[in-house]
C-alpha cells in the first residue's frame, strides 16, 4: 500500500504537492535531453576532424576536394595505400616508431617508478631538496636544454642514431615521478612493515609490493609516455638525417610539400599512425581515469 511519494520524504517534508512531481519528472527529462544534446554537439566538433582523416584515407585526391564536402567516401578506394608504402620507406619508419616508443616508454616507466619509490618511501640524504629540484625541472621547457643536449649527443657520436630519442627516457621523467610518488605515498605502510619483518629488502619490496599495486598509475603513464614518444616530431627532425631511420610521424610530415600537399597519402598515413595509439589506449583504458584519480586528484 506504500505510495511512491514515500520515496521522496524530503519533498514531502517541504510540503510539495503531487503536481510538482510531474514538473520534476518533466524537468529531469528536459535536463537529460539537453545533456545528451550537448554531448552529441560536442561529439561532432571533436570527432569530425578525426573521422575526416579516417574516411579520407579511403578517398582519391579528387574526392577529398569535392565541394560541398562529403564525409563518407563514394566509392571507397584503397588507392592511397600502395602509393603511400612506396612514397616513403614505410616499413622502416613503422618499425622505428614502434622501437623508439616501446623502448622509450619502458625506460620512462622503470626509471620514474624507481625514483618515485625512493622519494616516497626511502630515507636518504638531501631527499627533500632533490625532490624540489625535480619539481623545478618540470618547469624547464625542453627547448631551453635542446641546444646543449644536441651538442652532448653530437659529442657522443649519437647523431643519426635512435639513442638520443631513447636514452633520455631512461633517465627519469619528472611528470611520471611526481604522479607515481603521490600514488606510493598512499600505500599503507603495514604491508611494507610486514614484508620488512619477513626480511625483504628495499628492492624486493619495490618489485613485489609497490609495482604490482601501482598498475593503474603505470598504465596511465604508459599511455602518456607512448603518446609523447610516438608523436614526437622535434626530436627525430633534430637528431636523424637518414630517411630510413626516421619515424612515421616525420614520414607523414613530409607529405606536406612546399608546393603541393599530397592529401590522400597524408590521410592514409595519419590513419595508420593513429592505430597503435588507439590500441594502447584501449588496452590501458580500464585503468585510465582511475590512475589519475587515485593519485589524489593531483594534490600536492
Amino acid at each position: 500500500m506504500t505510495d511512491r511519494v514515500d520515496t521522496y520524504p524530503t519533498d514531502q517534508a517541504l510540503g510539495r504537492s503531487r503536481i510538482t512531481y510531474g514538473y520534476v519528472t518533466f524537468r529531469k527529462l528536459l535536463g537529460k535531453t539537453v545533456a545528451y544534446g550537448g554531448l552529441c554537439v560536442i561529439l561532432a566538433v571533436t570527432a569530425v576532424p578525426f573521422l575526416w582523416m579516417v574516411f579520407g584515407a579511403f578517398k582519391t585526391e579528387a574526392q577529398l576536394f569535392e565541394y560541398p564536402p562529403r564525409l563518407f567516401p563514394d566509392p571507397w578506394t584503397l588507392e592511397a595505400f600502395p602509393v603511400l608504402f612506396k612514397a616513403i620507406p614505410f616499413g622502416h619508419m613503422f618499425f622505428n616508431s614502434w622501437k623508439i616508443s616501446i623502448l622509450g616508454t619502458l625506460g620512462a616507466l622503470v626509471s620514474s617508478a624507481m625514483a618515485a619509490y625512493a622519494f616516497a618511501r626511502l630515507k636518504f640524504w638531501a631527499r627533500d631538496q632533490l625532490f624540489i629540484i625535480m619539481l623545478a625541472t618540470m618547469m624547464v621547457p625542453a627547448q631551453v636544454t635542446m641546444i646543449p643536449v644536441f651538442v652532448i649527443m653530437f659529442r657522443l657520436g649519437w647523431i643519426d642514431t635512435h639513442l638520443p630519442l631513447i636514452v633520455p627516457n631512461w633517465m627519469g621523467w619528472a611528470f611520471g615521478i611526481f604522479l607515481m610518488r603521490q600514488f606510493f605515498l598512499q600505500i599503507s605502510s603495514e604491508m611494507e612493515d610486514a614484508a620488512k619483518i619477513d626480511g625483504a629488502n628495499a628492492i624486493q619490496i619495490f618489485l613485489r609490493l609497490f609495482v604490482p599495486l601501482s598498475k593503474p598509475v603505470l598504465a596511465t603513464l604508459a599511455v602518456f609516455a607512448f603518446l609523447f614518444t610516438w608523436n614526437d616530431l622535434l626530436g627525430p627532425i633534430i637528431y636523424l638525417t637518414t630517411q630510413e631511420k626516421m619515424t612515421l610521424t616525420v614520414g607523414i610530415a613530409t607529405f606536406k610539400g612546399f608546393n603541393r600537399t599530397r592529401y590522400a597519402l597524408l590521410m592514409a598515413g595519419a590513419t595508420i599512425s593513429v592505430i597503435p595509439i588507439l590500441v594502447i589506449f584501449i588496452i590501458a583504458q580500464k585503468y585510465f581515469v582511475r590512475g589519475i584519480t587515485i593519485s589524489g586528484g593531483l594534490k600536492g
Binding site: P49, F50, N231, L233, M267, G269, A270, F281
Partner: peptide, 15 residues
C-alpha cells in the same frame, strides 16, 4: 572526446 587529441600534432595540423 579524449581520443582525437591523441593523434600526432602532424596529422592534426595537416587535417
Amino acid at each position: 572526446y579524449f581520443l582525437p587529441g591523441v593523434s600526432s600534432v602532424v596529422a592534426i595540423a595537416l587535417i
